[in-house]
């Protein structure tokens, strides 16, 4: 079935190849992410994509990485119904002297993904605080929630009762707000990336790394609070039931392993979320790019159909990755709290 579909796409491509020679490739994919001056060049380069050389313009990377421009809807078809709005710059900057890495420049000027973060946070607040208001209003009349508030409650309760509390362990109620915030923030940011003109904040390593570092700190603080002085044993391997001449070499070998295992957890969290969110977008862009590569309208339905399928998969992945990030954070917190026993 699937191979037949691909074969059909190829037949269409071969048949359409001569037709495409002199047609005007629509410049809809011209990236607003590029500087507006580069757009004319991008449209020109689009036609000569086959003779890949110095004129080739990368349309995929600018779309999935951060930029200083915001794509907004426009009625002008010559720029692909979009307009690039330059975001303000010159906001305060400061450098953080990091040990081993060196000075780390922090420019607080908003970029596209910063705006996406704001929008995601605003949507999350509107959704959840709205749900909470509806909850309290209806609860006063002794009624259960309905509609969106009910859906939010179902998600919150599922995450709390089925995911967070069983994994975090006893007296884990204190971690519920943090993990729920993580879940909803990532979920909304993921879904925002599927909306036209928007960007995927969670498809950038900066965002996922920050979230993972915060989770790392939460995990370690949870470990310190749960284990007290015994927390040191999760960093330095020090088996008390072995004689000293065995303990020292074992400790020298296994302590780095312990430390590595601590650091790989947030690293995996960051990379997993980033890679999942980025991969789908790259696939969608590559599929759409096939239309321009083959310079054919006849071929267009096949990549569009595949792109739609990938977008549907992305919709599932958006939920799945938010869920997995929360689940794994809960599991890691539970692990470090349980490691006393």
């Amino acid at each position: 079935m699937k191979s037949g579909f691909i074969a059909f796409a190829f037949a269409a491509a071969v048949a359409a190849a001569p037709l495409a020679a002199q047609e005007h490739a629509p410049a809809t994919q011209a990236p607003a992410a590029q500087a507006p001056a580069a757009q004319a060049q991008g449209a020109g380069a689009q036609k000569s994509a086959s003779n890949a050389g110095a004129a080739t313009v990368d349309h995929i990377t600018p779309h999935i990485t951060d930029s200083k421009y915001l794509e907004v809807p426009s009625l002008d078809p010559s720029h692909g119904f979009q307009r690039a709005v330059t975001l303000p710059s010159g906001w305060p900057t400061f450098t953080i002297p990091l040990p081993l890495i060196g000075p780390f420049l922090v420019d607080t000027s908003p970029t596209k993904l910063v705006v996406m973060l704001w929008i995601a946070a605003a949507i999350t607040v509107i959704l959840l605080v709205g749900a909470a208001r509806s909850h309290t209003r209806r609860h006063r009349h002794g009624l259960p929630p309905r509609g969106l508030a009910g859906a939010m409650e179902a998600m919150i309760l599922y995450m709390r009762n089925e995911v967070i509390l069983p994994n975090v362990g006893h007296h884990g109620e204190g971690f519920v707000p943090y993990l729920l915030t993580i879940f909803f923030f990532i979920l909304i940011a993921n879904l925002l990336g599927l909306v036209p003109y928007m960007g995927t904040a969670t498809g950038d390593i900066s965002v996922t790394a920050t979230l993972a570092i915060m989770t790392f700190i939460v995990i370690e603080v949870a470990g310190m609070r749960a284990l007290g002085k015994g927390y040191i044993n999760t960093i330095i391997f020090w088996p008390r039931d072995l004689p000293l001449y065995m303990r020292v070499p074992l400790s020298l070998i296994l302590s780095p392993v312990e430390m590595m295992s601590k650091l790989t957890k947030p690293f995996a969290l960051a990379i997993r979320l980033f890679a999942n969110m980025t991969a789908g977008h790259i696939v969608v862009l590559a599929l759409i790019g096939m239309i321009f590569t083959f310079q054919s309208y006849l071929l267009a339905p096949a990549p569009v159909a595949m792109a739609v399928a990938i977008m549907l998969l992305e919709l599932m992945v958006a939920f799945l990755q938010a869920f997995i990030f929360t689940l794994l954070s809960s599991v890691f917190i539970g692990l470090v709290r349980e490691s006393a026993h």
């Binding site: 922090v106 973060l117 900066s206």
Partner: peptide, 12 residues
């Protein structure tokens, strides 16, 4: 990028 990390932290 530092700016995005900073904003992620603040927004979160």
């Amino acid at each position: 990028t530092g700016g995005l990390m900073f904003w992620t932290l603040v927004v979160f």
